[in-house]
């Protein structure tokens, strides 16, 4: 039998801020119960300052979590907490899970780092369905949520203590404050989608502005017919839906005919492109394109015709078209990022 342990026995409870509306603007977590989950020992301490200790010997991914109750949190946009981490923790990300029976919706949040007190948060917007939900298309219905877990997804061995101030559930959305940069070295190793006739090479070279590193794509279009080539890989990060702009700093020298292709693609296949295509330039150019202005490519389909960043997207960098005459060219990318 799991026992309920008060996380914050003396702290003020419900806090309603401001407007006289029925819905609260913020709420403080009152108590919590450790969830017994395999592969990790989770203990709560309510001594001088509440703390959560995790002991996970294995290398596999595991979830350590506390049950923080239930309720209609449809008004809430995020959970935030202040805390410090001591010990060893590997890779750890804050997580929130809302359960309705055997179905679960979740978000992963800020990575935790060993060190002094810092602010952490996880969004409650656009919760993702767990893979094991019986109806994978169903969205969370907060009125039916019977458990809410706040936890940490742990990769690698961990033996650590998280000392926390009371978590706050708030109507304030969690917004990124800095651009999310795609590492060029990772992008150089992405999958190359291309027509078999195309010769294509990607590498990071010191040919960016002032000799800075840049991703260089060399392509050869040997035939005068429509060909394509593009690097494609995932944009790693959370809350992608919070970013508003795709920024690319680039230059290119392509054969006559093909257009540059920068696009974002949903996991379901809908590929959203810049239309008309970005201008080719041999000088460095920074392109800021509103994500809302991207257009569904004619060669893909998307049931709702709308780019949904929340479920994750992949980025494509390349070109396509008919090179006439056939020839070779290059694209240099000095920076690619999502801007809030």
């Amino acid at each position: 039998m799991t026992t309920r342990n008060p996380l914050l026995p003396v702290l003020a409870g419900l806090t309603v801020v401001g407007t006289g509306l029925a819905q609260p603007r913020s709420q403080t977590v009152m108590d919590a119960t450790p969830v017994k989950l395999p592969g990790v020992e989770t203990t709560l301490s309510v001594d001088a300052q509440p703390s959560l200790s995790v002991d996970k010997p294995g290398a596999e991914r595991r979830l350590a979590a506390v049950n923080i109750g239930s309720g209609d949190w449809s008004w809430a946009k995020s959970i935030r907490l202040q805390g410090s981490v001591s010990g060893t923790i590997g890779t750890a990300r804050l997580a929130v899970l809302a359960w309705s029976g055997e179905s679960c919706w979740y978000r992963l949040g800020t990575p935790l780092r060993v060190g002094p007190e810092a602010a952490y948060g996880v969004s409650l917007e656009a919760l993702k369905p767990a893979a094991f939900n019986a109806d994978p298309a169903a969205a969370v219905d907060w009125k039916k949520v019977d458990q809410i877990w706040l936890g940490v997804v742990l990769d690698g061995p961990a033996k650590a203590t998280l000392t926390v101030a009371p978590p706050e559930i708030t109507a304030e959305p969690l917004r990124p404050t800095a651009p999310l940069t795609v590492p060029l070295a990772a992008a150089a190793k992405w999958n190359m989608g291309k027509d078999p006739a195309v010769q294509h090479k990607a590498a990071v070279v010191n040919e960016g502005p002032d000799g800075a590193p840049a991703l260089r794509l060399d392509v050869t279009y040997p035939e005068a017919r429509h060909l394509y080539s593009m690097l494609s890989g995932p944009i790693e990060g959370e809350d992608l839906g919070s970013y508003r702009t795709l920024r690319i700093r680039y230059r290119a020298t392509l054969p006559k005919g093909p257009n540059l292709l920068f696009s974002l693609q949903e996991p379901g296949g809908g590929q959203y492109i810049i239309d008309p295509p970005p201008a080719q330039t041999t000088e460095w150019k920074t392109l800021d394109i509103a994500i809302a202005d991207l257009k569904l490519a004619g060669w893909t389909k998307d049931a709702d015709g709308k780019l949904s960043m929340d479920q994750g997207v992949s980025l494509q960098i390349g070109c396509h078209g008919t090179a006439n005459p056939p020839g070779a060219g290059s694209i240099w990318i000095a920076e690619v990022c999502l801007v809030p």
Binding site: L37, P38, G39, E60, R61, R62, L63, A95, L97, C104, Y106, L108, A130, A131, F132, V153, L154
Partner: peptide, 13 residues
């Protein structure tokens, strides 16, 4: 078998 490895919630043993 319906687990979710992204969350570390597997169906196991």
């Amino acid at each position: 078998i319906a687990g979710d490895a992204r969350l570390g919630l597997s169906v196991e043993y």
